[in-house]
């Protein structure tokens, strides 16, 4: 079992077992599929989620998105941490050390 912890710069988020990112051809968009749940994951949400591979740290993900969106790192960091915290609370993302 991974050590459970809050979303911090050096935590390594990954999709929980049974959760996967899927391109929905019929609706032409990305979704997160989980037990009895379908969650839209377009745009920035998709860019964050596809980097939740257990290898990248939160800091890595923030760096990459700041480059991708040419945006202030602090702004991106706020968005990334907020989204990950919400998904951790829903048990869709796990935070590894």
């Amino acid at each position: 079992m991974a050590v459970e912890r809050g979303t911090q710069d050096d935590s390594h988020p990954r999709l929980a077992p049974g959760v996967r990112l899927h391109f929905d051809k019929a609706r032409d968009g990305w979704v997160l599929l989980a037990p009895e749940r379908v969650i839209e994951a377009e745009g920035p949400a998709h860019e964050i989620l596809r980097r939740c591979d257990g290898k990248r740290s939160v800091a890595d993900i923030v760096d990459e998105l700041a480059t991708l969106y040419v945006e202030d790192r602090a702004v991106i960091e706020g968005d990334v941490v907020a989204m990950l915290a919400e998904l951790v609370a829903k048990r869709l993302i796990l935070n590894g050390p």
Binding site: D24, A26, R27, V31, L33, V38
Partner: peptide, 8 residues
């Protein structure tokens, strides 16, 4: 099913 939009 998949072609008509079923996901699960």
């Amino acid at each position: 099913a998949a072609a008509m939009g079923v996901l699960q």
